[in-house]
């Protein structure tokens, strides 16, 4: 299987902007990234729920995730989900082994720890991209559309929704992901996200495949199809 972690992304996380570097350092970083790829894997779960658009007691817009106790508040996420009929909740993690590896390196080789940490960051992004591609394919198969995944901590979607997302998906039981009192995820290399699912192509949907994070994992793209426009529009273009 091809390497998932992208060296250029790892370098970007580390602040690389074309500096000239010793080839030995480049090799050393490459070996660290390889070991991350070999030692860790990203596991994730997701489920979809209908959503209801509502307003709270203060007249602020909310999105109620039906069949769960989750209510999303704040301008950015309600705007993001505007027009959505459902959403997917996702949790992904590199597991406790990622924390253990980082701990060992922290005690023995700080440079390796920093590089490994950046490699983990890209690995979890890639794993979550793959998970998102599953959601996109699921929606596409039902004639629905998706927007980009949106994570707590972005915009004004607070981190405090994380424990509820974990509970709704039983992420503690199924993935071993928990949240601290300050709503930080443990293991640290874990991620939660919301993907909007829409009956019509949303304005904040995917503009095309070339810059789509899911592309490498997308079964729709793999068979030459696209997820972001109506089939009939496609036909019209064809004519």
């Amino acid at each position: 299987m091809s390497r998932r972690i992208r060296m250029d992304e790892v370098l970007r996380y580390l602040g690389y902007s074309g500096q000239e570097m010793d080839p030995a350092l480049r090799r050393r970083m490459g070996a660290i990234v390889d070991s991350c790829e070999d030692e860790l894997d990203c596991h994730g779960i997701w489920a979809t729920f209908p959503v209801r658009h509502d307003t709270d007691g203060l007249g602020e817009r909310t999105v109620v995730v039906e069949g769960t106790t989750l209510v999303l508040t704040g301008h950015d996420i309600t705007e993001h989900l505007s027009g959505a009929s459902a959403c997917a909740l996702m949790v992904s993690t590199l597991g406790a082994e990622s924390a253990r590896r980082l701990e060992v390196l922290g005690a023995t080789d700080q440079l390796a720890q920093v590089v490994y940490d950046a490699a983990c960051t890209d690995l979890i992004e890639r794993g979550t991209d793959e998970l998102e591609a599953q959601v996109v394919a699921w929606a596409h198969g039902r004639g629905l559309y998706t927007s980009y995944r949106y994570g707590p901590g972005y915009g004004d979607l607070p981190l405090s929704v994380q424990p509820t997302i974990l509970d709704v998906l039983s992420a503690g039981k199924r993935l071993g992901v928990t949240a601290t009192d300050d709503c930080l995820l443990v293991p640290m290399k874990s991620e939660t996200a919301v993907v909007g699912i829409y009956p019509e192509p949303p304005s904040n949907g995917k503009p095309g495949c070339s810059r789509c994070a899911c592309r490498d994992y997308c079964e729709i793209h793999a068979r030459g199809d696209v997820c972001y426009r109506r089939p009939e529009a496609d036909d019209r273009e064809g004519r």
């Binding site: 500096q19 350092l25 440079l111 590089v115």
Partner: peptide
């Protein structure tokens, strides 16, 4: 910005 983090650490 002539060096990036791993270079500083090395």
């Amino acid at each position: 910005g002539e060096y990036f983090l791993p270079q500083l650490m090395a």
